[in-house]
Design a protein around this nucleic acid. Structure first.
Lengths: 185, 185
DNA sequence: TAGGCCATGTAACCGGTTACATGATTAG
DNA sequence: CTAATCATGTAACCGGTTACATGGCCTA
C-alpha cells in the first residue's frame, strides 16, 4: 500500500486536504494501521491531480491559510475500485518491543521493566484514541475497524499485564560474563 | 530498528549465517514482527564485521556451499547492550486489510468476502507457524513472545470469524452510482 | 530435466522520511 | 513573547527491496 492509494482511499470517503490526511494518518483513525508524512502525502496528491484522479480548489478561511481541497473524479473512483479488487498485500507488524523481549536474558532488569512500562503506556494510549475517538471520518467500515483494533490491542494489553512477571524473571540471566564490560561502560 | 541491530540481536543469541538470519526473519520465529531480505542482511553483516562487532569463519559442508558463520565479539555485545538500554521506537502495524475494511462500502461484496477469507487464512497460517514452531532459536524470551503473538492473533481471528457478517452487510452500499462505470470496466 | 534448496553477494532503483522554508494567527 | 496550530510544499538523503549473477546438489 503506497501513499497514493491511501490518499485515494480517504478521498473516496470524503473531500479533504493534505494537512487533514496527514492528521488522520498520524493521530486519527487511520493511525493504527498506516503511516505517512507530509513529504509523501503532498507529492502524491499533486501526482493524483496530474493524472486526473482528483481535482482541487482553494478554500479561503479567515485567520488561517487557504486550504487546498481535493475531490475524487470518476477516473479516480475507478482506479481505487480497481485497486480494491486486486489481492492486497500481507499485513506487516514491526515490533522493536518484541525483538527486545526476545533478548530479555541479555537485558538489564531495569531496562526491561522500563520497556514493558512504555509498551503498556503506548497500547493504553492507542486504546484511548479508539474509545474517545472523535468521528473524524465518515466511513461505514470505521466502527468495525475500531472494534477489531480494540479486540487485538486489549488482548495484548491483558497479556502484558498478566505475564510481564515471567519475562522480568528472565531479565539479565545471560548477562553475568559481561558484568565487567558493562561496568566500564 | 534497522537490519544492523536485528543481526546483532540474533547473533547475540547464537552464531549464525546470513542465509539463516533471513530464514528466521521471513519464515521463522522472528517473522511475526520483523522484515528483512538478503539485499539488506548481507551488507549489514559485512559492515558489522568491518566495524569489529562480529567475526566470521568459513565452514565447509559436503554437497552444499560453504557457510560463512558470524560470531559476536565483546564490542558487538556492548553495542547491542547499549542499543537495548536506549528507548525503543514505537511498534508499527501496517494493514492493507484494515484500509480495505474501512472502505467496505465501496467494495464489491465478492471482493470483500475474498479479502476476509484471505485474511483469515493468513492469520491461521501465522498461528500454525507459532504452534508447530520448531525451536529454531535458543533464546529464553522466545516462548513469551510466541505466547504474546498467539494471544493477539487468536483474538483477531475470533473477531474476524464472529463479526465478518457485519462488515459484509456494509459491502457495496455506496457503490450504486458507479454501477455504469464499473460495468464498463 | 526442470525446479527447488543451499548459499553468498551486488547494483539499480524506489518509496518514504527528515529537515527545512514560509507565514499568519491564537493560546498560554 | 514564545510556542503551537494551521497550511503547503521541496530537496537531500537513506534504508531497504527487487532482481540478478553464480553454481552445485537433490528431488519429482
Amino acid at each position: 500500500m503506497n501513499v497514493r492509494t491511501l490518499c485515494l482511499a480517504i478521498l473516496n470517503g470524503m473531500d479533504s486536504t493534505g494537512y487533514e490526511i496527514r492528521k488522520l494518518v498520524s493521530d486519527g483513525h487511520f493511525s493504527h494501521f498506516i503511516d505517512a508524512s507530509y513529504g509523501s502525502i503532498y507529492p502524491a496528491l499533486n501526482k493524483l491531480e496530474q493524472d486526473g484522479m482528483v481535482t482541487s480548489f482553494e478554500e479561503q478561511q479567515d485567520g488561517k491559510p487557504n486550504r487546498k481541497v481535493y475531490c475524487v473524479t470518476d477516473t479516480g473512483r475507478l482506479e481505487f475500485l480497481n485497486a480494491l479488487s486486486q489481492p492486497a498485500q500481507k499485513d506487516k507488524y514491526k515490533s522493536p518491543f518484541l525483538l527486545l523481549a526476545m533478548c530479555a536474558e541479555l537485558m538489564h532488569p531495569a531496562d526491561l521493566k522500563r520497556a514493558i512500562d512504555k509498551q503498556i503506556v503506548e497500547v493504553r494510549a492507542e486504546l484511548t484514541l479508539i474509545d474517545t475517538g472523535v468521528r473524524d471520518v465518515d466511513m461505514k467500515g470505521a466502527d468495525w475497524v475500531a472494534n477489531y483494533g480494540r479486540s487485538c490491542l486489549s488482548e495484548g494489553l491483558k497479556y502484558l499485564e498478566q505475564h510481564r512477571g515471567e519475562l522480568e524473571k528472565i531479565a539479565g540471566t545471560s548477562l553475568k560474563k559481561l558484568s565487567a564490560l558493562t561496568a566500564a561502560e
